[in-house]
């Protein structure tokens, strides 16, 4: 057996960060600490993405998840827990139920993972510094290709049944458009939901801006 290479070291490092963060989320009794655990965990996931050759998605994970979603969560925590460090009370029953449910699930999932045999079980031997080792004839995953795929150009150029693709066959234009509309709806909906009445008897003057 050879020792771990660069990728393995990094993988284990970030796997530990990811799982440790997740454990912090579960075990901490303070919501803000849970949020910090989530940050660590998601950061580890982003780094795992980078290691797996998904650079764009990794950066996206950092930007949207860690930089956006979790900051949003932290904001929510601050707005809803004015007393610093609100403890989360969890009853013994809830823990019991959770463990009872989690144990079999873990067993099943581990079983599935162990029994998984890659069809082309050729594992990677990649140099940590050159990054992705792409086989001959295959383009690296650049954001440009991802973008093209989202605009409806198939990039894989193969159909599951082995046939050649034609225009619009396996692109992602429709989901892309759908998700854009979805985001717009969500934006308006969230703004509507979070809107708050100005406290009675308090009319912020026009030139003092709106707070909402």
């Amino acid at each position: 057996m050879t020792g771990p290479d660069g990728m393995a070291i990094l993988f284990w490092l970030f796997a530990i960060v990811t799982c440790g963060g997740a454990l912090v989320v579960v075990l901490s009794r303070h919501i803000v600490r849970a949020a910090v655990g989530l940050i660590l965990s998601l950061f580890g996931v982003a780094m795992l993405f980078l290691l797996a050759g998904a650079e764009f998605v990794g950066a996206m994970q950092l930007m949207i998840y860690v930089g956006g979603t979790v900051v949003l969560l932290a904001f929510g925590v601050m707005l809803t827990a004015r007393r610093p460090l609100l403890p989360l009370s969890t009853t013994r029953d809830q823990w019991l139920a959770a463990v009872l449910l989690a144990c079999p699930l873990t067993v099943i999932l581990v079983q599935a993972a162990l029994s998984y045999a890659p069809t082309d079980s050729v594992s990677a031997q990649v140099d940590a510094h050159s990054g992705v080792s792409t086989p001959v004839g295959m383009l690296p995953v650049t954001p440009a290709r991802l973008g093209m795929a989202l605009l409806g150009f198939s990039q894989d150029n193969h159909r599951p049944d082995g046939g050649e693709v034609s225009h619009g066959d396996s692109g992602y234009l429709l989901p892309f458009e759908l998700i854009s509309v979805h985001l717009l709806v969500v934006l308006i909906g969230a703004a509507y939901l979070a809107r708050r009445e100005v406290p009675s008897g308090m009319t912020p003057r026009d030139n003092q801006g709106q707070l909402q």
């Binding site: 989320v25 996931v45 463990v99 581990v110 599935a112 162990l114």
Partner: peptide
Amino acid sequence: SPITPAHYLFVGIVLFVTGMI
């Protein structure tokens, strides 16, 4: 080492189970 997809799956399992708990 080397890292296989199964390694990634295990990280996924940890996240999933902790998330569920």
